[in-house]
Amino acid sequence: MQSLKSNLVQVTCKINGKEYTGMAEPRTLLVHFIRDDLNLTGTHIGCDTGHCGACTIMFNGKALKSCMLLAIQAQGADILTVEGLAQGDKLHPLQEAFWENHGLQCGYCTPGMLIASLFLLQRNPDPTEDEIRRGIEGNLCRCTGYVNIVKSIKAAAKKMQEGGKTTAQPS
């Protein structure tokens, strides 16, 4: 049994294929740990209340909101953040599709949108528009009106099917 008083504890997890270790209070939210302690600031904080989805990460293969998890719960977890999508200079098909279809304006929601979309496409490689809209229900965008985001995800689905690539392999 692990008993932890309210002080710093060591958390080790794998993010984008690399092992990270940091110190966190039990009450520290995972998103704060990723951004402030591990300096991976690609994951954004939009609302901090679990509504906006900007902090969405892949956590042991499932898209989750990292503000709705404690850092301490990431002990031993395998995490993918937006930084892990591109392979060096080569963007992930989802990132390419968002670029080509103007799937972002200010870009603040994009990291979360990309990970939520990745989860959707891994499960459903050829989604309908309704399925896409349902898949990103947990991600708010205040710029685009979603039209180009939906278009981007559709385009990414096509790219990924053609390329036979349905999962991101973190470098």
């Binding site: 692990q2 008993s3 932890l4 209070e25 039990p26 009450r27 704060h32 404690l70 301490i72």
Partner: peptide
């Protein structure tokens, strides 16, 4: 936002 301190088990 951060929760109030607690002990974690």
């Amino acid at each position: 936002m951060t929760p109030k301190q607690f002990d974690y088990y």
